[in-house]
Amino acid sequence: MLKKIVLLLLAAGLIGGSVAYYLWTKKVPSMAGEKSELVTSAEQLFTEFANDETAATTKYVGKIVTVSGKVRESSKMEDGTPKVLLETGSDFGVSCEFDPNTKHAHTNFQPGTMLTLKGECAGLNLDVQLARCVVVE
């Protein structure tokens, strides 16, 4: 009986430990598999932040947002991470930094191209910034 209890405890400990190890070491998943919570246009998203940053922060920050807009600038950051700035009709744009955990089919876009991107909204820092973006085909 005691042997059984010890074995059961050992098994439970092993399972618990494995689950904890898996959760602790799990990598940040690709944005491609994440479900979009809000859909909007770059112009609408920027306007909401420009008009009422607090309300827009509550609505968008931390949410997975799908944004459509016209490319103003397509560039690569110093470490090679692609970045796209979408037009908003103002001096500032919606800045989308590409997801490092996704293999992107295209990363270079001509200015004026219509593009739909999905990423996690980080908030307003001159531009509205979207982190870990992927192109939505």
Partner: peptide, 16 residues
Amino acid sequence: WKVLIKNFIFEKALMQ
């Protein structure tokens, strides 16, 4: 200087 906290990229999901 200004940074948005949500834009910090981590390797591990749970840490983020």
